[in-house]
């Protein structure tokens, strides 16, 4: 067992334990928000502990991919390409979950699965952008060029993410803004008490650990895949 295997195992075990704790905290400890009236609203509100962390992980994953892209272009070490790719894959998986959990929450609260709200639309566009990243990689045969173009795309794509999120503050959005000043039009908004806040930040932390556990697994798999490919080439063309 190598050092990185050990790290992966520790991260996975830690993420699993934290996740169990999260289930207990979310369903056992966290109180109902004071200003939600109907039982449906109160039950569905608990998806918040899952929904927001998935978007946070997606966001984090895209930051990491852009950072790894910059490092790849500077150092040209394949390691950064592996990290960038792994991070985007995880980010796409988590933002997909974010879109789905958002829909599940929206149905009882807004009485619709999807609405063309700016926040939802920009989120969906951001998600499509990284699908584009994966398609770009799939369409290039030369591995060196694939890594280079992917790095360029990851940098450009990430740049429009934060500004997309800024732009929605100028709109009237019905999506609740729990952290910071919310929009007056938000529907299904709720206030965070101290316990809710504690549980929420615990969940954010849990998902962050989970992200790193997945990252170390995925990056390692990708690295080994490439090594096998490399060795295969050596055997065939010897």
């Amino acid at each position: 067992m190598t050092k990185s295997d050990l790290l992966t195992a520790i991260l996975l075990a830690l993420a699993g334990l934290l996740m169990l704790g999260a289930v207990v905290l979310v369903f056992g400890v966290a109180p109902d928000p004071a200003n939600l009236q109907t039982p449906v609203e109160r039950y569905s509100q608990r998806i918040f502990y899952f929904h927001v962390p998935t978007w946070w992980v997606g966001f984090l994953a895209f930051i990491v991919s852009a950072g790894a892209g910059v490092l790849y272009l500077i150092t040209r070490h394949e390691r950064w390409d592996v990290i960038s790719l792994s991070s985007v894959e995880i980010g796409v998986a988590f933002t997909t979950m974010g879109l789905i959990t958002g829909s599940i929450w929206a149905k009882p609260t807004w009485n619709t699965w999807w609405t063309w709200d700016p926040r939802l639309t920009t989120a969906a566009i951001g998600w499509l952008m990284y699908i584009g990243y994966l398609m770009l990689r799939g369409a290039i045969d030369n591995p060196e060029r694939r890594a280079r173009f992917a790095a360029v795309f990851a940098i450009v794509a990430f740049l429009s993410v934060p500004i997309n999120f800024m732009a929605i503050r100028w709109w009237r959005t019905i999506h609740p803004v729990v952290i910071g000043a919310g929009s007056a039009d938000a529907q299904g908004d709720f206030t965070l008490g101290p316990t809710i806040r504690m549980v929420f930040f615990y969940c954010l932390f849990t998902f962050t650990v989970f992200y790193f556990a997945l990252m170390s697994l995925r990056a390692r798999t990708e690295w080994l895949t490439r090594r096998v490919e490399h060795l295969k080439q050596q055997v065939i063309f010897r």
């Binding site: 951001g126 584009g132 770009l136 060029r145 173009f149 429009s160």
Partner: peptide
């Protein structure tokens, strides 16, 4: 132009990025 799909891929890459 260096991808297999060539011009097919361009809108897929460009449209989401230029949305702002």
């Amino acid at each position: 132009i260096h991808t297999r799909a060539r011009e097919v891929l361009l809108p897929v890459l460009l449209f989401p990025v230029v949305i702002p």
